[in-house]
Structures are given as C-alpha cells and as structure tokens.
C-alpha cells in the first residue's frame, strides 16, 4: 500500500511537468498585454514598453519559461504582476473560501444525491422515482450561475433572509459564515447532486438484483438493514468515483459561483487574472488546482480498498 502511494506520488512529477508546459504555453500564446491593462486605456506606447521591460515580459519565451519552471520546482510561483505580492501568498489567502465552498457543496451534493438515488432505486418506476429523475436532470442542466442568480433574487432580494454575496470567514462568527455560504454552496452542490443521484440509483438497481440481497430478504432481515448495510455499501463504489471527479467539477464550478456571489476565492482570482493577463497568478493557480485534482483522485483510489475488500492496489 505504502509503496503504491509512493509510486503514485512519484508519477505526479511528469504529470505536473505536462500541466506546467501546457499552462505556460496557453497563457503566453493568448494575445493581450498585462502592461497595457495595468497602465489603462490612455497610456502611451513608451509607458507600456517601459513597464514590459520592468516586468521581464520582453525576454524570449523559453527564457521566461525556464525561469518560471525553475522557481516552481522550489514552490515559488513568482510575483503577481497586478497584485504586487507573491503568487503563493495570493493563492493561500484565497484557498480558504474556495476549499470551504467546495467542501460544503460536496456535502450538499452527497446529502441530496445519495438519499435521492437510493429512494429512487428502492421505489423503482414509482411516481417518486420519476420526480427524482426530473430533479436530477434539471439539476445537471441548470447552469450554476443561473441557479445562483435565482437563489439571490428569492432569498436576498425578496425575502432578505441571506446576504446577496460576499464572504465572512468562520473566524468572524460561525453564524455569519454559514449565512454567507448557504446560497453558493447550495447552487453549486445542487447542480452536482443530479449526476450523483443518477449514478447511485443505477448501481443500487444492479445491486438490489443480486443473489445475496435476495437471500437477505429471504432471511427476513428488516428492509432498512438490507438497503443500508448490504446494498448501499456495494452501490457506493461507483458513486465514490463520481464524488472524486465531482471535486474537480466543483472546483471548476467554484470559478463561476465565486464570481456570482462575490466570494474572494481562487476561482475568482483565476477569472480576474485572465482578464488582467496576470501570467504568474494564472499559471500558479492552475498548477495548484491540477495538483489538488490529482491528489483527490489518489485519495479516492486508496479509499476503494477500505470500502471494497476485493480491490487490491498496484499488484500487491
């Protein structure tokens, strides 16, 4: 097991090199000039040239790449062009809102998706199943930003129960923090719950037809016990894959959600940095997000072993 995890960690290096090259190339081949953005609409050509020189943007691309990549290996993502602070600090300052938003959204996704999927499978082809199917499909189909705006209009503008946006860190009071996170986490989690519910439903249906489930019924075990202990545990294995992938999707969705709800997280930083052509920040953030994604997938693979004893990792 330890050997497997170590091997996977070593494999991270080539993955991150590829990510680094792709990100650097994409960012630098996109037209647009950070110096022009910083200096404003009426800046003269000389001003822009002077700033480009200062920012090291006039060096050949391979030189810039080597400099950036060398620094990155030492976990130094460079200095933000726009914010005037190290990228690492800019990212760390914004990790908390994004991490918590993703976590809450994940919890909401599981809290809605798993019971809905189980109920739909147990009451297969009933009206309840159809209602859940419609909800699941609309959950996947409604874009997060649209759901977000609708939620704001209902709960912030009409009812005035919750703030329309902004972020209160947990350190400033748990009540205010949860209030600021309810709407964005729900908007993000609800959209993701649909897919999970469909997945749980179909794997539950498969499991419920298995012989051992029939045996359990024949033994006269209570329904609750059969569904929760015997069926659900086995049905959760494919669902776990979906949850793992969802972390990536939720991180991506956080970009949009943070913009709609004015949450100063990593997602919004990426969007704004793209508009500002803040190369070091875009690169650093994407590398960090890619790294998170790869690590989450590793954790999911390891979790399989605990949920399903049949799974053996890496030829042990």
């Amino acid at each position: 097991m330890t050997a497997y995890i170590l091997r996977r960690l070593v494999l991270l290096v080539p993955v991150m090199i590829v990510v680094g090259v792709v990100v650097f190339a994409l960012v630098h081949l996109t037209p647009g000039d950070p110096a022009a953005v910083i200096l404003g609409d009426r800046a003269t050509a000389e001003d822009i040239q002077r700033l480009r020189e200062q920012l090291g943007l006039n060096d050949p691309l391979p030189v810039q790449f080597a400099r950036w990549f060398g620094d990155m290996l030492r976990l130094d993502f460079g200095e933000s062009i726009f914010l005037g602070e190290p990228v690492t600090r800019a990212l760390l300052d914004r990790v908390q809102p994004t991490a918590l938003l993703t976590l809450y959204a994940l919890l909401i996704q599981i809290a809605i998706g798993v019971p809905a999927g189980v109920l739909a499978a147990v009451r297969h082809n009933s009206p309840l199943d159809r209602v859940f199917t419609v909800m699941a499909i609309s959950g996947s189909a409604i874009p997060t930003f649209f759901l977000g705006i609708v939620l704001i209009l209902i709960f912030a503008v009409r009812l005035r129960w919750l703030p329309s946006g902004g972020y209160a860190p947990p350190g400033e009071g748990l009540g205010a923090h949860l209030q600021s996170m309810v709407l964005p986490a729900f908007a993000l989690g609800f959209s993701a719950a649909g897919l999970l519910a469909r997945m749980v439903r179909s794997s539950m249906l498969d499991v419920l037809r298995e012989d051992y489930v029939r045996t359990a019924w024949a033994k006269g075990l209570p329904e609750r016990l059969i569904i929760v202990r015997h069926a659900l545990r086995n049905a959760l294995i494919p669902a776990l894959t979906i949850i793992g992938i969802s972390v990536g999707a939720l991180l991506g969705g956080a970009v949009v959600t943070e913009t709609v709800f004015t949450i100063p997280g990593m997602g919004r930083l990426v969007v704004q940095s793209i508009a500002r052509r803040d190369y070091p920040v875009i690169q650093g953030a994407i590398v960090a997000i890619a790294l998170t994604y790869v690590l989450v997938n590793l954790v999911v693979d390891v979790l399989y072993v605990y949920i399903d004893p049949r799974v053996r990792l890496g030829g042990e």
Binding site: A156, V157, R160, S164, G165, T262, V271
Partner: peptide, 17 residues
C-alpha cells in the same frame, strides 16, 4: 467592494447590501 458580475451588483443594491 469589487463585484464583477453585473447581476450580482444589481441584486446587492436591491437587497440593500
């Protein structure tokens, strides 16, 4: 407060934020 999304600025004004 930077609120890049216009709909969010409008909603915040309506909500009194």
């Amino acid at each position: 407060i930077p609120v890049p999304d216009e709909a969010a600025r409008v909603a915040g004004l309506q909500a009194g934020d």
